[in-house]
Amino acid sequence: MLLIRCPYCEEERPELEFRNAGEAHIARSADMAATSDDDFEKFFFIRSNPKGIIYERWRHMHGCARFFNAVRDTVSDRFLMTYKAGEPKPANLPGAAK
């Protein structure tokens, strides 16, 4: 069971309290109705599914109930960091150099 740090509660809590909510930083267009078919496809269907670093959303379901973002290594399952929803994709990842 993973330990996940909720950036709102500022605590590491067991995975049981959380729910994964898919890839992060996929912005919904402000002008949704005018989105082209190609753009809609990218927005709705296409996910990076990387081997390695993934930026993803989690919800602290049985805690503060907030959605937040996390950087996780899909190979080791290690969380490199978590940050609040709406914050930009972090430029420097702790411990990601190796």
Partner: peptide, 13 residues
């Protein structure tokens, strides 16, 4: 409820 919270917190904050 989850769907609503998701949009409220992340798309329409």
């Amino acid at each position: 409820m989850n769907h609503m919270e998701d949009y409220l917190q992340t798309e329409f904050p």
